[in-house]
Design a protein around this nucleic acid. Structure first.
Lengths: 211, 211, 211, 211
DNA sequence: TATGAATGAGGGTTCATTCAT
DNA sequence: TATGAATGAACCCTCATTCAT
C-alpha cells in the first residue's frame, strides 16, 4: 500500500512540479516581455507566479537560465511543420500566405522575443549562436528546400533560394519590429498583410507584369 | 591683444569641450553596442573615453541621457535626403537600389541601434514613441511620396503606397537583424543585396513575369 | 502537531523580526546621535546593528525613513501623561518639578533628538511640521489646560497660559541644548535643576517676594 | 608713478578682496541657513556669491572653514556689551528686557545658527568647545557678574548667579528653537516676549506675590 | 520542498577639491 | 587671481542569490 501510494503520489508530485515550473516560466515570459530582461526582477516573476523568490531557484539555476528556458519553450511551441505541411501541398502563393500568417500570427510571442530575448541574444555571443541556430536556421531549413523545389519545378523564377529565404525571414522579423514599435499602418491592416505580402513577393511592383 | 587671446581661447575651450563630448558619446555608443545598455557601466564608458566617471556627468545628466544623445546623434547622421536626392531623379529600380544601399550600408551604426537602442526603445513607451517618430515615420515620410508619385505616373503598379513603404522599411530592419545575428549568407553577399532586393521587389518571384 | 509548530514558529519569526528591527533602529539612533544624520552612513548603522547593509532595506525604505522611525519611536516612548498624571493631583510647584524632571530626565534621548533629528527637522518643512505637531503641540496640549486651570483656581497669577506653556517648553529645550553643548554648571547640578527651576518659575527673582 | 599706482591699487585690491570675501561669506551663511550645512553645496554658494566654485578656495580652505568663518563673524557681530551697557545702568527689570530684546531680536541670524552651525557644533567635539566658549561662556561672562552684583546689592533674591545665568540663556535658546520650528504663539507675540519674560522672571507665577 | 529574510557585490550619482588656463 | 571643468572617493540603494527554518 505504501508502494501504491508512492506510485500514485510520485506522479502527482511530478505533475505539481511541472505545473509550478510552467507557472514560473509563464510569469517570467510575461514579465520579461513587459519590462525586458534587466528591468524584470526575480521578485516580479515570483510574485506573478505566486511563489516565493527562493522557489524559483528550485526550478531554474538562475535568472539567465529562465531566459534560456523561455527561448527553448518558444522554440518547442513552434509548430511550423505541422501547420505548414498542408501549405506545402498547395501552390506557391498559398504557401507564402500560410507562412506569413503563421509567423505574423503570434504578436504576443514575438513581443516577448523582441523585448526580452533579442536584446540578450544580440549581446551574448554564445546565446546568439544558439538562438540563431534554433530559430533562423531551423526555419530557413524548412523554407529553403521548398523554395528550391519550386524553382526547380519552374513555379518560381530562378533566384538564389537561400537568399530568398533570408528575405522572407527578414520581412517577417522587420514587420514584427515595426508592429511592436507601434506602427499604426501595420496594426490596422495586420491580418491582410500575409496576402498582400505574398502577392507583392510573387508579382513584384512592376506595372502590367504580364504581357 | 587680450581680446584677441580670449577670442582664440574661447573657441578652443569650446572645441575641447565638443571633442570631449564626442569622445564620451563615441565611447558610450561603443560600449552600449558591445554589451547592451544595462551591462554597460559608466565606468566602462569613462575608461574607454579616457575620462573620470564624474566627467561624464558634466556632459550628460545621467546614463539614460547618454542613450538619448546617441539616438539623437544617429538621427542627425542620417543623410537620407542628400544621398537619395539623386536617386529620386533616376528610375524606380535605381531608387530602390540606392535606398537599400544607403540603409544597409552602415552595419556598425545599425548594430548599436539594435543592441543598445532598440531594447530600451521597445520597453519604454515614451522613448518608443520618440524613436518611432524620429526614425520610422521620418523615413516613411521620405519614401512614401516618392512611391506614390511613381504609382501615379504608372511606374509602379497600383498598391497602397503606405503599405509598400512599411514593407521596404521592414525588409531593411529585418535584414539588419539577421545580419547582426551572424547570418553567413547575408554577410557574404551583403553588397549584392541592394541589387537583388530591388529586382525582387520590382519583378517579384513569378516566373516569366512578362509575357 | 504541524499546526502547533507553525503556531509557535510564526510568532518566533515575528519576534526575531521585531528584535532585528529594534536593533537596527537602536543602531541608527546611536550612530545618528554620534555623527549626525549626514555623517552617519548606512554601513555604520549596519555594522553596529550587526547586519548586512541590504538587510536594513528589508525593514526601512531608505535612510530618511530610519530617521522618521526614530522620531516616531521617541514620540511613542513619551509617557508624559502616565508619569505626570499623579503630579496633576499635587500642587502647582510639585507639578512643575515633576514636569521638569520628566523632560530633563532623558539626556540620552535628547541628545539623539538634538544631534540627529533637529537639524533635519529645521531644514525640511514637511518634517518640521510633523515634528512640531508631534512634539511641541502635543506636549503643549498637556500643559496648557493644567496651567489654565490653576490660573482659574487662583493658584497661579493671571498670565497668558499659552505663553507660559511655551516658556516652560523653551526652558526645557534650551537647558538640554546647553547641557549637550557640554555646560559644566548644568551637568553638575542637573538633578537639582527641576527643583530650582520650579522655584524660580513660581517665586521669581524679586527679593522678599512676600510682604 | 608706478609706486603711486601700486600704493593706490593695493588698497583697492585689498578692498575688492574683502568685499568678495564678504560676499562669499554672506552667500554661505544664507545657503547654510536655508538648507543646512550638508545640503548646501559649494556650487550653491558660489552661484549666490556670483563667483566661480574655485574662487571660494582662494578665500577659504574648505567648506568646513566657511562654517568656522561664519561662526566667527557672527561672534564678532555680537555687540552685547555696547547695546547692553546702558541697560546695565538701569534697574534689573529693564536690564532683563534689554537682554531678551537683544538676544531675540535677530531671528535671521539665529536661524542660521540653529540650522547650519548648531548641528555641526553638536557633532564635532572640537568645534563644540570652541563654540561653547565663544558663545555660551562669553555671554555668561557678561551676564553673571551683573546678576551677582544685583544679588549683592539686594536687587535680586539670593540664588546661584551662575544657575540663573544659564536659565536665562536657556530660555533664549529654547525660544529661538521653538520660534524657528514655526510656533505661531511665539511668532505673533514675539516683540512682547522680552517684557513678558522679564516680568515672569522677576515676579514669578505666584499669585499676589507681595503681601 | 517552499519560504522569504539576509546577504553583499555592484553601480549610478554627487560633490568637495584641484589645477590648467 | 578667477575660472570652471576634471577628478574620483564616497555612499545610497538594488537585487540576484543563498540558506536556515
Amino acid at each position: 500500500m505504501d508502494e501504491t501510494m508512492s506510485d500514485q503520489s510520485i506522479p502527482r508530485r511530478e505533475r505539481l512540479r511541472r505545473e509550478r515550473e510552467q507557472r514560473i516560466l509563464d510569469a517570467a515570459a510575461t514579465v520579461f516581455a513587459e519590462k525586458g530582461y534587466y528591468q524584470a526582477t526575480i521578485r516580479d516573476i515570483a510574485t506573478l507566479a505566486d511563489v516565493a523568490d527562493g522557489t524559483i531557484y528550485n526550478y531554474f539555476d538562475n535568472k539567465f537560465d529562465l531566459l534560456i528556458a523561455i527561448i527553448a519553450r518558444l522554440a518547442e511551441l513552434e509548430r511550423l511543420p505541422k501547420e505548414l505541411n498542408q501549405a506545402l501541398q498547395g501552390n506557391v502563393q498559398e504557401f507564402f500566405v500560410a507562412t506569413f500568417q503563421q509567423r505574423l500570427g503570434r504578436v504576443r510571442e514575438a513581443e516577448a522575443m523582441l523585448k526580452a530575448v533579442l536584446p540578450q541574444v544580440l549581446v551574448n555571443p554564445e546565446l546568439r549562436q544558439r538562438f540563431y541556430r534554433q530559430y533562423v536556421l531551423r526555419i530557413a531549413a524548412m523554407l529553403e528546400p521548398y523554395v528550391q523545389a519550386q524553382i526547380d519545378r519552374g513555379q518560381l523564377c530562378a533566384v538564389d533560394a537561400r537568399f530568398v529565404t533570408r528575405v522572407i525571414q527578414s520581412m517577417i522579423v522587420g514587420l514584427l519590429v515595426l508592429r511592436v514599435l507601434g506602427d499604426q499602418v501595420l496594426e490596422e491592416r495586420w491580418t491582410e498583410i500575409p496576402g498582400l505580402l505574398a502577392t507583392l513577393l510573387f508579382d513584384g511592383l512592376r506595372p502590367f507584369p504580364r504581357g
